[in-house]
Nucleic acid binder design. Structure first.
Length: 295
DNA sequence: AACGAAACCTGGTGGC
DNA sequence: TGCCACCAGGTTTCGT
C-alpha cells in the first residue's frame, strides 16, 4: 500500500485515535514481521501516552511519553484499521473475509480512549521498532535517509546536487531513498511522465556543466511536489484494498496517467503514443515513449 | 563505488 | 472450474 501519500493518509487517520491516548493493552501476535520486534515490545508501550504522531518519508513515528519513539513501516502490504471503542461495530464495513483483517492481524493496540488500532500485514514486509527520541536522526532507520520530498529541501538545485555525475537511470535515482525519501514505484512513474523525462535517462543529465540544475530538474522538483500533494489530498491510492484507517478507499489511482496503463493510449492531448512497460532493477516502469524521450 | 538481481512472504489475477 | 505462472505500493542483501 504505502508510498509517501498512503503513509501520510494513514498518519492522518491514526492521529485522532492515538494522540493524547495511552496504550492500555498491546497484543503482539508473532515474534517478528520483516524483522524481530524489539525486546519487551508490548511492555514498553503499555502505559505510555502518544504525544504526537509524525511521518518521515514512508515511516510513521509515534512519540511516546517514555521518551521512546515507536517507528513503524508498512512494507508492501501493511495496513492499519481503527475501530472506535464503545460504538457497535459497523457490520460489513471491515473485518469481512477479504478486508485485510483477521488472518494477518499481527499487532493490536488498545487505547485509553477506547479505540482499537490493528496492524495487518499479509506479506510481513513491514516492521516496528522502538528507538530513543534523542538521536533518532542517527538511528539505523534514519541515518543516511534522503530529503523529504514535501519539505523545503526539494528544489531543482538539490536535485542537481544529488544527481550530479550519476550515470544511474532516473528511475533508479528517484527510487533511491538515500537521495529523496518517500517516492515509490507509482509516483516515480507518474513524476517522470509529467516531466517528460525518459526513465532510462541518466540521472546526471539533469545537471548542467557547472552543476546547475537544468530546466527539467526544476520542473521535476515541482512535479514531484505536485503529484505527491495531489495524492495526499485524494487520500492516497488504493490498489488492492482500502487505503484509509476507517476502511474507506483512496482515489488517486483514478488519476494515474501511466502507472499500470500498459498498452493504453497516452493521455497527453494530441499524443498518439501508447503507454509502454519496461523493467528496471526488477520493477515495472510505465511511460509514454512519445512524451518521454531520452534527451 | 555502483549497479542489478535475488531474497524476503502471501495473495490476487489472468491465461490456459 | 482449476491450476499455475506471474505480478504486486518496499527494502535489504548478495553478487558482479
Amino acid at each position: 500500500m504505502p508510498e509517501l501519500p498512503e503513509v501520510e493518509t494513514v498518519r492522518r487517520g491514526l492521529e485522532p485515535a492515538m494522540v493524547g491516548a495511552r496504550f492500555t493493552q498491546v497484543i503482539q501476535r508473532r515474534p517478528d514481521l520483516r524483522f524481530p520486534f524489539p525486546d519487551r515490545f508490548a511492555e514498553r508501550l503499555e502505559g505510555q501516552e502518544v504525544k504526537a504522531l509524525g511521518r518521515r518519508a514512508k515511516y510513521l513515528l509515534a512519540d511516546l511519553s517514555s521518551g521512546e519513539v515507536l517507528v513503524m513501516h508498512l512494507g508492501m502490504s501493511g495496513r492499519f484499521l481503527v475501530a472506535q471503542g464503545g460504538a457497535t461495530r459497523m457490520p460489513g464495513e471491515f473485518h469481512h473475509e477479504h478486508g485485510g483483517s483477521g488472518a494477518h492481524d499481527h499487532v493490536v493496540f488498545g487505547l485509553s480512549n477506547g479505540a482499537t488500532v490493528t496492524y495487518n500485514d499479509a506479506r510481513r514486509f513491514g516492521f516496528m521498532d522502538l528507538v530513543p527520541r534523542s538521536g533518532i536522526e542517527t538511528s539505523k532507520h534514519f541515518a543516511g535517509m534522503g530529503i523529504e520530498p514535501l519539505g523545503n529541501e526539494l528544489s531543482g538545485e538539490t536535485i542537481a546536487g544529488l544527481f550530479a555525475g550519476k550515470r544511474t537511470p532516473l528511475k533508479a535515482a528517484l527510487l533511491d531513498q538515500r537521495l529523496i525519501a518517500g517516492l515509490g514505484n507509482i509516483y516515480v512513474c507518474e513524476a517522470l511522465f509529467r516531466t517528460g523525462l525518459h526513465p532510462e535517462a541518466p540521472a546526471g543529465s539533469l545537471v548542467g556543466k557547472k552543476g546547475e540544475p537544468t530546466d527539467k530538474a526544476r520542473q521535476l522538483a515541482d512535479v514531484i511536489r505536485d503529484v505527491l500533494s495531489e495524492a495526499v489530498e485524494a487520500g492516497g491510492s488504493t490498489l488492492r484494498d482500502h487505503a484509509q484507517v476507517d476502511g474507506s478507499l483512496g482515489y488517486f489511482q483514478h488519476s494515474f496517467r501511466v502507472y499500470d496503463r500498459e498498452k493504453e493510449p497516452c493521455v497527453t492531448p494530441g499524443c498518439s503514443g501508447t503507454v509502454a512497460r519496461l523493467v528496471q532493477s526488477g520493477r515495472s516502469t510505465f511511460y509514454c515513449p512519445e512524451c518521454q524521450k531520452r534527451s
